[in-house]
Design a protein around this nucleic acid. Sequence first.
DNA 1: GTCTATAGACCGATAGAC
DNA 2: GTCTATCGGTCTATAGAC
Lengths: 191, 191
Amino acid sequence: MHEAREDAIVAVVNRLLAEKGFEAMTLDEVAAEVGIAKASLYKHFPSKEDLAAAAMVRLMDRARAFLDTLDTRQPPLKLLKEVARWTMQVQLAGEMPSLPSENSSLRAALTTNKPYVDGLMDVSDRLGAWITAAQADGSLNPALPPIAVLYTLYARACDPVLGFIKGSGLYTDEQIVDMVMTTCFDGLKKR
Amino acid sequence: MHEAREDAIVAVVNRLLAEKGFEAMTLDEVAAEVGIAKASLYKHFPSKEDLAAAAMVRLMDRARAFLDTLDTRQPPLKLLKEVARWTMQVQLAGEMPSLPSENSSLRAALTTNKPYVDGLMDVSDRLGAWITAAQADGSLNPALPPIAVLYTLYARACDPVLGFIKGSGLYTDEQIVDMVMTTCFDGLKKR
DNA sequence: GTCTATAGACCGATAGAC
DNA sequence: GTCTATCGGTCTATAGAC
């Protein structure tokens, strides 16, 4: 009962973080959408930053659950592509929380949040292993530092291009994802 | 004298927009950095949104000035690459204002700001011509809609990957730009 | 045009009754 | 735990003297 309520809160926070970002999201709004009073939020989470951090932890848990569904016997490049596709689908579904770039109170709160850091580390380690494997088997550009590849994949998860193209109203979600997948893995230049 | 003061204001706004974004930027801070009182800002610009819009117009003017320096007899792909490189250098220099993704008062103000919209249109038209030319000469992937290429280039201008890699402290600005240029035009896959 | 001072609105967080 | 009510602070924007 208690956990179900908290899950409902975090789900609303997750969606509002995706829609408007951390600063534009107000606790009045969160409380109204959950259907409880603002003061009640503070019985579950000590601050706005902790609320957002809980949403990020939830995202990391979802990511790890998705990684668990993948057949690791597949080629590493295919695994990385499936991950990239999943993150784009999450974003197009309006469920990808967007973090402030820098100098934010949320950034500081996240770096000291062990469940979040642990989850991020786990995901990064798993992706990092696939990246080096894909570079070793010749499918991924070996001239790129693995960390650059990792950050590029993370950045595609919140790439504004998806929203831009969707805003044009010319393409379906599936077409949009295919385009960005192409630009990400094949590049803009002709192959 | 009057214009010089306004230029100083807009330059400060431009940098603060790059550092912290629109919502986190306060007018107290702008006024303090310019060295005038907050009320004086309103003698030059009627609102915070107009202040930010002026910074975006300034960015568009800078972009158009850069486009004017390019030798248009070069291959279109080379022109597009130089533009992408320029935007990344602007971002690494801390001079690329970052806009809110959606549902912001600034978005609405920008769409009704004629100088900004005109500048953006001009830049988009010029880049669009080079994109279709590069697709025609076989250097750019012709399967991608030109608008997707255009948006991808715009997105690279504010790509968080640059800041991520810079934060690792492992690479120079030039190396970072080269990496992102590679991922953007050549893709993650090996060629 | 510049300043000081403040209005008016909003937000995060808390008090205290139930 | 939930609520109503409110505090304390910050923000944009303005009033009014000089």
